[in-house]
Design a protein around this nucleic acid. Sequence first.
DNA 1: GTGGTCTAGACCACC
DNA 2: GTGGTCTAGACCACG
Lengths: 125, 125, 125, 125
Amino acid sequence: MIYIDYKNRSPIYEQVIAEFENLIVKGVLQPDEKLPSVRSLAMELSINPNTIQRAYHELERNGYIYTVKGKGNFVAAKENFIQTKHEELWNSLRGLIKDAKGAGISKEEIRQRIELFLREDGSND
Amino acid sequence: MIYIDYKNRSPIYEQVIAEFENLIVKGVLQPDEKLPSVRSLAMELSINPNTIQRAYHELERNGYIYTVKGKGNFVAAKENFIQTKHEELWNSLRGLIKDAKGAGISKEEIRQRIELFLREDGSND
Amino acid sequence: MIYIDYKNRSPIYEQVIAEFENLIVKGVLQPDEKLPSVRSLAMELSINPNTIQRAYHELERNGYIYTVKGKGNFVAAKENFIQTKHEELWNSLRGLIKDAKGAGISKEEIRQRIELFLREDGSND
Amino acid sequence: MIYIDYKNRSPIYEQVIAEFENLIVKGVLQPDEKLPSVRSLAMELSINPNTIQRAYHELERNGYIYTVKGKGNFVAAKENFIQTKHEELWNSLRGLIKDAKGAGISKEEIRQRIELFLREDGSND
DNA sequence: GTGGTCTAGACCACC
DNA sequence: GTGGTCTAGACCACG
């Protein structure tokens, strides 16, 4: 279901969070769909249950999932996270553009690259 | 010369690196210009000299500066780092655009935001 | 009759208890009135009968209802719970006021907020 | 420095959080003052370091403290938490008032009790 | 020495 | 069986 890179320097729990955020934001996991149980996922990934627990807890705190004790973890309603996610993206983008300008890249070159990236693989709109 | 935020979560040596990268890429520090000595900078920032040493070492590894034993650290020639820096930026930008598309944001909205950010504060081109 | 929020963090049996306490204290359910049977309520709410059983047991322990074996569960006489309920409220209120004072909020501001809250929606007195 | 009730059903880490929130909000711990290290506090309270770690992490997330890796945890600036704390208090107070009205207590009785509580022990204003 | 992460294994509340 | 909490002990990054 999700992929973890054990060699990666970033903490495992953050990778788990990122993977699920991704699946949820993209709609692969639909609202109210059940996530793997803490224990089963831990087993599957050969990871300690505590680590999964922590990841799920963070996901809940950020509005991506909700927890029902004794039942499991489920994908939250779209409204709970979509706006936050977009704002995060805009902030990152803004910082990057600022850096690019700081590095002496011209506006026109930025525009051209953006168009390039926009045309790659997928296509919404 | 550079500013360190001790309350920031990111390690001090990374902040030192980022500050110098910035000054060098922007041209505030010109090629072959001398950087402050490890000890003097450590003193000025009330930081352990080891921390500065590590930052300078990383900067050298990434082609931003070169070291002359017994003399000090100096800004490298532009060719050594400018391309790498730009590639890093393009890669980040590409990833971000991909994420935005994954999150269901339309190309047109991305273009509009980009224009907005391009117009903020500074203006090259 | 009562509403359960399955996504809520607090356990279902506590929600059941709270809902019935509320109905009883407000007088919607009058003394000696019969509560729904464990099984019928469990069915209606799609909940495990054990959970309802536990809630009823707690309600009985706190003097809100009484149980007649073979007959069902009934709302207790007002004297059995009204005073306890009020005392609980006063204790909570007292703690909260103390906290507010501890947080440096002035008495006058507390009074003003109280008046505000008292005027909201319903109106006894 | 802080007191933990091991018999209490509420989790230890929440008690630790509550105790420090209290000390910070009341100003017993001043901004930029150092908190006990994770290990030393764990030792002192005969608690596992992980539990303290978790409490500190939550306190940081809620703006009460900030963490400097390799240095320790420190009380944050007042602006970071005072408003949040007050809002929490007003929300609780509002709920309680609503409950009291629901339980059939008259506005006048509520006012009288409030005055009583306001006059107890401490006195700001 | 300090916080950050992780493992292995345990017990509890809830359903 | 499920999540929630806790312990004991380990290793790493940072200063």
